[in-house]
Amino acid sequence: MDFILPILIVGLYMAWNIGANDAANSMGTSYGSKALTIKQIIFLACILEFLGASFFGHRVTHTIAKGIVPIEFLSQDIVILGAFASILSASLWVTIATYYGLPVSTSHSIVGAVLGFGIAAWLNGLLDLDAIKWFVLLRIILSWVLSPFFGALLGFLTFYLIRKILLENFDVTSVERVFRYLQVLSACFVAFAHGSNDVANAVGPVCAAFGYAETPPWILMLGGLGIAVGIATWGYRVMEVVGKRITELTWTRGFSAEFSTATTVLAASYLGMPISTTHTIVGSVIGVGLARGIASIDLRIVGTITISWLLTIPITTVLTTLIYYILIILG
């Protein structure tokens, strides 16, 4: 059980990472449209991400911890080793990607890493390849394709309806004023949904290492706390940069993007699918854009995101396998 403390530390680092970067990505539209100030966003995000993680995070955590690799067939020491290797490789990949400004998904990273652990266990002769729940993996991969799609569809429909029903029939300024308040609500919604879905990336393997059949509230709270600390310490800087990049974003557009992202993410959390919040928001923004709501969308960046998305799984899978073997060799 020598790895318990390092696992907790790496898990907290992952949670910090999620708070520092992903929360800003999820709520950047609120700052971009000036619905909220940075301080207000940080305050709301800390509280709601923590609540989302603590009260709604258990379903996804269960999928990540046990859904892909049948840890019940492995000894506790191997599970601890695998959990450590998984969180470390996912965290390393997120750090490397962040350094190069690539918006990779923490959800993709951790799923790839857990898969790498399963492959390492198979290579080690501890597990049959058939024992890895490829079906669960397929479901998760499918959800990554579907989440930006549903984000885009909901974003399109939400903004299309706002345009047809409100913007075309009422004074634009009055409509926008109402949506300023609605965007504050949607920002809260997105923070809650993000916390509930993404806490699993930090605490899923930790939970497996501790051998818990059900995720205990204290682990979820610890993850939520890590996310909140990430937002409070680094989210401020990220938000400032992100907010300045978004121009010409009105409250109706910000609301449409946030509402569709939060709805998709929360629905995925409910179904136990660790989807990517960052890719859902990209989908939602594109959806609002397709409804002629956004002045300009750069497809080159969408391409870069898709490539980093495709690279994440193989890289974290290989990295986890390597770290696992290095740890075995080091004894």
Partner: peptide, 18 residues
């Protein structure tokens, strides 16, 4: 280290103001 992983570059340059 800038440590920023932003998806909001999807909002491209808007020529309308210019």
């Amino acid at each position: 280290m800038k440590f920023i992983r932003s998806v909001f570059d999807v909002f491209g340059y808007s020529p309308f103001e210019d």
